[in-house]
Amino acid sequence: MSDLYQSDLLRLAASADGAGRLEPPRASVTLDNPLCGDRVTMDVRLEGGRITALAHETKACVVCQAAAAVIGRHAEGLDKDGLAAARAAAEAVLKGGEPPAGAWAELALFKPVAKVKSRHACLRLPFRSLEAALAADQG
């Protein structure tokens, strides 16, 4: 069956890293994927524009859950520019490229998603939610 559903991606999704809620968050945003009903709520706390804590509640497919888990693992400490770089790495993977070495190298697990356009939004949703949470905090 599909290389999309490789064991490593399934394990990443099942890890649910970062799953939960922050009480109280500094900012919280819920975004939907209108195509399939995926829903991600992203809570963040920030100091000086940097993420000091985050938690996500992800009701979604394996791709979206795995993307949320990657963010849960690696997004702490990022500022707006760092998040933009992470998003750019994800976009590069969706175009069939390689992610940069380092924290976001794990995005390579999503390479099979590049061929399935209808699933791109699933990978993007947690990134979009986190971007929106940062933007919400900055007013």
Binding site: S2, Y5, D38, C61, R119
Partner: peptide, 12 residues
């Protein structure tokens, strides 16, 4: 299980 995952695997 999520419907998109089910549909993707069944498509194959």
């Amino acid at each position: 299980g999520h419907p998109h995952d089910i549909c993707q695997l069944l498509d194959e």
